[in-house]
Amino acid sequence: MSRVLITGATGLIGGHLLRMLIDEPQVSHIVAATRRPVPPMNKVTNPYDLQLSDALTQLTEPLDIVFCCLGTTMREAGSKEAFVLADYTLVVDTAITGLRLGAKQMLVVSAIGANSKSPFFYNRVKGEMEAALIAQDWPHLTIARPSMLLGHRESQRFNESLFAPLFKIMPGKWKSIEARDVAKAMLHEAFSPSHDGVNILDSRQLREIAARTAIS
């Protein structure tokens, strides 16, 4: 039985993953650290603070697996500084918390095109985040790099509405993917990792793993 930490549980992928973790018999307890409180749920403890890092510092009980589904856009963040906080700093803080509490496995949502050398700010920050986690030398580190996400959001992102028809017909790793399939693939990898060390999965691979799982 595993104790897990999840950040980003109120987001598109994280919401699906949290519900799957609740139903997963191999999970005994879930720590869902959030900025704002979430409704009470079975197996879930919800430390929360507007400064998410402060919520993470409250944690003292041992952990086995860490999931991080944090992510925003430049438009939603409002500034480069706010974007770096959400997509780099808080992700690394999540990882540091997991390591402090004994976790041996981390699974994180990144993005297609992540590259620390990219001339594009978004892709560069995602790549720097990945590099920071890789440098922590996790026994198991799964990095999910989905393409455009499909699924219901309370507020639709402008670029996703504009480009969704195009990404639905693109080939391979560029084809858009259901957020639920990303969550299914992450859960599968948590309990049946493809291999030790670092495992980077693009949209095509995530879809294939999700298709093999029994989660309805």
Rank of each mutant, 00 (worst) to 15 (best):
F121L: 08
A103Y: 02
L162P: 03
E24M: 08
D54A: 12
L56K: 03
G11N: 06
K175Q: 11
M148L: 13
S116I: 03
E208M: 12
T7D: 04
I13H: 08
N123H: 10
F191V: 14
A144F: 05
I22S: 12
N199P: 12
G71M: 05
E178Y: 08
S216D: 14
A164R: 14
E178K: 14
M170K: 11
E154H: 11
T213K: 06
A214R: 13
L101A: 05
K80V: 05
F120Y: 15
R100P: 01
G15C: 15
E154Q: 14
R180Q: 13
N159P: 15
P25I: 09
I200S: 06
E24A: 12
A135T: 02
T97N: 06
L206A: 00
S216T: 15
L107M: 06
P37V: 06
E81C: 11
S28E: 13
S79C: 11
I22K: 15
P146R: 00
S110G: 08
K117V: 06
T60F: 01
M186E: 10
V198I: 03
A9N: 07
L12G: 09
A190F: 04
I200H: 07
W174N: 04
T213P: 02
A32F: 11
R35A: 01
E208R: 10
V198A: 01
L107T: 06
I30Q: 05
A95P: 00
I96D: 01
L52H: 00
